[in-house]
């Protein structure tokens, strides 16, 4: 009994950890990653690898230069890189993927103070930056199982088709992801499997995905379009399950999360239907990210054991 440690209670801790959470997110993303790589071939594999490797490398090099503790072990950079890659078409030039990874990690995450301090989702901002800078190179969507190098004609994504009032593929094809789109967004089935896994393992609270998806469905239907296609197309599931649920940039309370999800759904639908851009998920989530502190303030929990304030006391 010589070297006793003295600490503040509690002395028991759960076995949860940041890296375990991130690992679960990666596991949940595996189905859609594998499907994307099978559908879109070697190019997709390269985009995913580039995204992950450059994200981790950016974090490592930045922290090394800034003489900060190296945090790549918490796997959050890997998650950012993976999400970024899954949000790009397989035809994206690899150097652009690398650039987007570096922007995500260095500009959006590290410059704001590293993990836990960024105000917007790093992967989404990285994606938005390169799609704005290199619009044509990052929007060559191809159909699954098409050799991009031989047959480079870009396919129309579902959103393009909906916007142009073209004939849509059957729903089951959409559900399995047999249509043009970003690597990780096409296969709804794989995304839902990942989402269920995250909810069951309690990594995410289902409030955001459910409110986001439901709002999009209802709003799209109300505006006279097919709501089901609305939620199964254009990265909505990927965004709702994996991007909007990013802890750092979403509200703390369940009430706040629901408001956040509804906001995302409304903005996504408005951009899709009234905007000139076919896709709205990224912008909607980043916009709501910025509103998160405000939502947190408005939805702060009230303890049932707090003294009722004068107004409430009167109501009683």
């Amino acid at each position: 009994m010589d070297n006793l440690t003295v600490t503040s209670s509690p002395h028991f801790r759960s076995n949860n950890s940041t890296s375990k959470i991130m690992l679960y997110v990666i596991l949940a993303l595996l189905p859609t990653t594998v499907v994307g790589c099978v559908y879109f071939g070697i190019n997709a594999v390269l985009v995913v690898l580039t995204g992950v490797v450059f994200a981790v490398l950016s974090e490592y090099i930045y922290e090394k230069i800034m003489k900060q503790p190296i945090t790549v072990g918490d796997l959050s950079a890997a998650v950012t890189g993976l999400l970024l890659a899954l949000n790009l078409p397989s035809t994206t030039p690899l150097w652009m993927v690398a650039l987007a990874s570096a922007i995500s990690i260095i500009v959006v995450k590290q410059l704001f103070g590293g993990i836990g301090c960024n105000f917007a989702n790093p992967a989404l901002v990285g994606r938005i930056v390169i799609t704005l800078c290199f619009t044509s190179e990052t929007s060559k969507f191809i159909e699954p199982f098409v050799n991009a190098n031989v047959d480079a004609t870009a396919g129309a994504t579902l959103l393009n088709s909906i916007a142009a009032n073209e004939k849509l593929p059957e729903l089951w094809r959409v559900f399995l992801g047999l249509h043009a789109g970003c690597i990780g967004e096409v296969c709804s089935l794989a995304l839902i499997v990942g989402g269920v896994f995250l909810v069951v393992t309690r990594v995410i609270n289902p409030a955001i995905p459910l409110s986001y998806i439901l709002t999009t469905y209802l709003f799209t239907t109300a505006l006279g379009y097919d709501g089901l296609y609305g939620i199964l197309s254009g990265g909505l599931l990927l965004g709702a399950i994996f991007m909007a649920t990013d802890y750092v940039t979403s509200p703390l309370t369940v009430k706040g999360k629901i408001i956040f999800g509804i906001g995302c759904g409304v903005i996504t639908t408005v951009i899709r239907i009234f905007g000139s851009n076919a896709e709205g998920v990224s912008y909607a989530i980043v916009f709501m990210n910025v509103l998160t502190p405000l939502i947190d303030n408005l939805t702060a929990k009230k303890s049932p054991f707090a003294k009722p304030n004068k107004k409430e006391a009167k109501a009683k």
Binding site: H11, F12, V248, S250
Partner: peptide, 14 residues
């Protein structure tokens, strides 16, 4: 059983 690990940054997991 009673390790108190080094804290890392808050990730706002709620």
């Amino acid at each position: 059983l009673a390790d108190t690990p080094e804290p890392t940054a808050c990730i706002r997991c709620s």
